[in-house]
Design a protein around this nucleic acid. Structure first.
Lengths: 147, 147
DNA sequence: AAAACAATTAGGAATCGTTACGATTTATTG
DNA sequence: CAATAAATCGTAACGATTCCTAATTGTTTT
């Protein structure tokens, strides 16, 4: 996903162009990681001091419906990121420090689908691996050394 | 897990016995499914009208720390259930209608652990399959027929 | 380019789940 | 049964999210 493509999808779906929407998309293009609504708000308020929370949540929601953003819930908060370029279904390694992710191609449902049924109708699943990325680990170690 | 065993663990850890705690445990023993804090509160308030939310959340938290209860976050809310009898690591099929679960023995991490690393330190993972159980599906179909 | 229209926004209030608090009550120990 | 520490109530505070209305803005039409 990229900003231009996202803006096109937006137009096609009948949504209006606004500078704020473009900047929001640009933010996700720059930060390739999960962001909270608050982080988005804080970032956009640098250029648009009066920006309201409502605007952020509303736009995050519509972009998610258009599959421009991916959403997941981490530690009780909604987190958003630009949809991965790979159209194929996939999962993520998620760094809980910085929100950066790495894709995993394999999906556990491939193995399980067959054994599951028995009347249970599967409507979705969540597979996420949490931890700390190499970079954050280094940062932490440095901090610890200075104590 | 069962009520007696849970009460013993509680004692061993230096927590006091209270009738409310026993009843809370009994509730989870009866309802073998994920319950929200609110559902727990409502249920206990039948016998203890003045029961406070604080008491519910505090006890849910301590029972989870003692591994008497399992916690997961579904649709933005904490959900609790009696820990499964199988001590082995496992995952769940979860009915989003009624909260009932079915265990899955296989864990996708068994396959992935080897390929993951690259400096990423795995601290946890979540694998849950969502849907509707056979029973809820029947109920829904009946409802639909009456419209 | 101006008017008309619908979508978007700001600002703040409302809601929901959860946590925090001081005063009171209760379970446990000796 | 008295002393002590833990548990509880009732309520206030909190943070994330949603909802509301009047004002603003982007787009379309003329």
């Amino acid at each position: 996903m990229n900003v231009t493509k996202a803006l096109n999808i937006m137009k096609e779906q009948g949504f209006k162009y606004t500078a704020k929407r473009e900047e929001l998309l640009q933010l996700f293009s720059d930060e390739k990681r999960y962001l909270t609504a608050k982080e988005v708000l804080n970032s956009l308020q640098k250029n648009y001091p009066g920006m309201s929370v409502d605007t952020v949540y509303r736009n995050l929601a519509i972009f998610e419906e258009m599959d421009i953003l991916e959403m997941t819930e981490l530690e009780g908060e909604m987190h958003f990121r630009f949809s991965c370029s790979t159209t194929a279904h996939h999962h993520h390694l998620i760094c809980l420090e910085c929100g950066k992710t790495r894709e995993i191609e394999t999906c556990p449902m491939d193995w399980l689908n067959e054994n599951v049924d028995g009347g249970f109708e599967v409507t979705g699943h969540k597979f996420e691996i949490y931890g700390m990325c190499a970079e954050c680990k280094r940062t932490k170690q440095k901090e610890a050394a200075h104590v």
